[in-house]
Amino acid sequence: MLPAVSNKSFGLFFSAGFLLAALTGAIGLGWLREPRQYRTDPPISAALEGFRLMPNAIGGAPPEVYFALGKPYEGTAYDLSQGKRLYSWFGCASCHGEGEGGAGPAFLDGWWLYGPSMVSIVASIRDGRPHDMPAFRDKMTIDQIWQLAGYVKSIGAYSAKLTAPSRNDAPQTRPAENRAPAAILFNEGSASVHPDQGPSP
């Protein structure tokens, strides 16, 4: 039989236990911190180049290495932030605005001309598309293109994301990237935007 524990020592044990649990929790949270991949190994870059595209250049299969890495470019805050920087550095906004479109198509209307898959977006950026979408093959490295594609995809997201890129310094023209910016337009349906493509997206 265990000896009876007095009230006083119970309090002591409780406080010590609570402190230990809090400490373990804090260390655990620090341990779970999302690692950042600053340097893409050249073999991985080369593999990222090797996705397979359907003959009509819409959709396809990402390279094996993308899954092995855990699909970083859609999910990690660092890659999304870098994608957001690339979006402004490479002048995407001059045709696509903050996603509302302009000379180029919108990302917010829930309609992806070449499908919503990462491979299609990467191919659009890398190789260009008809109607004046330039190819960025010689301007960006392939891992930058994947980062940018992940960011572009997050502008058109219609369900909220856990990860967010950095905030805007300028006033927002649409909900932030992690708050499903396309949801409003998507829920309304894009029939008015693309009447030729059917009644709803």
């Binding site: 950042r36 600053y38 340097r39 893409t40 050249p42 870059s45 080369a46 870098q82 920087r85 960006m140 490295t141 891992d143 930058q144």
Partner: peptide, 16 residues
């Protein structure tokens, strides 16, 4: 050749 090893996190990518 490798800016990310010399100064990790800077904005210059490794250009193959």
């Amino acid at each position: 050749a490798d800016p990310q090893t010399l100064k990790p996190g800077n904005n210059m990518p490794i250009v193959p």
